[in-house]
Simulated scan of single mutants.
Amino acid sequence: MTDILVPNRRAFLGRSAALGGMAALGPLAGPAFAQDAFPNDTLNVVTHAGPGGGTDITTRMMMLRARRVFDQDMVVVSKRGGSGAAALMYVDSRPRDGYTFMTITQSHIFQIIQKKVPLKIEDLAGLARATDDPTVIAVPANSEIKTLEDVIKASSEKDGGLKWGTTFAGGADHVGIHNFCKKAGGIPYAIVPFQGGGDIVTALVGGNVDAAILNYAEGESQFEAGDLIPVVALSEERISGIPDVPTAAEQGVDAYASTVRGFACLSGVPEDRMQILSDGLVKSMEHSVYQAYLESGGMPKSSVVGQDKWNAHIERIYVESETALKELGLI
């Protein structure tokens, strides 16, 4: 997925001549010509969200420890617009030297799928995953739906399927609902778009929709109050805040949905620099301060992973989302 920057012939010959001259000066000249270790300047982290949003907070929580790990200043560069398109284009305009990378979400991947930026998924090089915020299928407290089997049965019996609250057509929530319903035997469904997660929760409590996919933190207070019932976790492991709620996977439905954030650069950054960034980011987020942030949001410690697992997850999001959007006729 990544390319190594290769110097052109003139630059290579120039450096060779310089090295030859250094040898002639003797061994004491060596340290004066040695390259500085990476990073030796400010690291710029590009986000697509405004101050106070989940992406901004995640980025700043990482930076609390990362400044010490990298022994460099780090700044947030906000490039809002186009659901991540503006951030991608800005990073694409910067030198691919490792000093500029970005915080990405599913939205950035959607921009690539929908060809809203002149980049391909191969151009995106994951460094470290920061959050893997699991979701749960929730229903109103007075719903007759209590289990995964009930979800499937009610969907099959209701004309047009259950009404699901979501943010907007073609978004990550919509794709998550579509993939779940497909893997649950192709059950029918209908979506009802809302402005945001808070509006979905309100509509669900009021019984204006039958079900929704919520991050645990979005519905935590309603779960505790008994206003909403968590039925099925769409996560790889059970959610710690609701350990009695089984996952879809352990019941034979291989469906997953989560809100994901992580750090990435564009291919062309030297591989050794990407490795330094990946290792430093993982070390920073394994610190107790960042881990406490994950725990406070109901997110598992396993959220934090390095290059290999993060790039595999990016690929899975890309493939599943592209397939879903094609099936929905949105691309």
Rank of each mutant, 00 (worst) to 15 (best):
L5N: 11
V6D: 10
P7V: 12
A11I: 13
L13Y: 10
G14K: 07
G21P: 00
G21L: 12
G21E: 09
A23L: 11
G26Y: 08
L28T: 15
A32D: 11
Q35S: 14
A37F: 08
L43T: 00
V46C: 02
H48R: 14
H48K: 13
D56K: 01
I57M: 08
T59E: 06
M61C: 09
M61F: 14
M62Q: 05
L64N: 10
R65Q: 11
R65G: 09
A66Y: 12
A66H: 06
R68E: 15
R68Y: 12
F70C: 02
F70Q: 01
Q72E: 07
V75H: 11
K79I: 13
G81T: 07
S83F: 15
A85T: 00
L88K: 00
Y90M: 05
R96V: 07
G98D: 01
T103D: 15
T105S: 10
Q111W: 04
I113L: 10
A125S: 11
G126Y: 04
D132T: 06
T135I: 09
T135K: 13
A138C: 13
S143W: 01
I145Y: 03
L148A: 08
L148S: 03
D150S: 08
V151K: 01
V151A: 04
A154G: 06
K158R: 12
D159I: 11
F168M: 12
A172V: 14
G176F: 02
G176Y: 00
I177H: 01
K183P: 02
A184D: 01
P188N: 06
A190W: 01
P193V: 08
G196S: 15
D199T: 05
D199S: 15
T202V: 14
V205Q: 05
G206T: 05
G207A: 05
N208W: 11
E218R: 06
G219D: 03
S221W: 07
S221L: 11
G226Q: 05
G226P: 04
A233H: 00
A233M: 02
S235D: 12
G241F: 06
P243R: 12
D244P: 00
P246N: 04
Q251W: 04
V253L: 07
A255N: 02
A257V: 08
R261Y: 14
C265E: 14
S267G: 15
V269C: 08
V269W: 02
S278G: 07
G280Y: 00
S284R: 03
H287G: 10
V289Y: 11
V289N: 08
Q291K: 09
P300E: 04
D308I: 10
I314L: 11
E320P: 03
E320A: 09
T323N: 14
L328F: 09
G329T: 05
L330H: 06
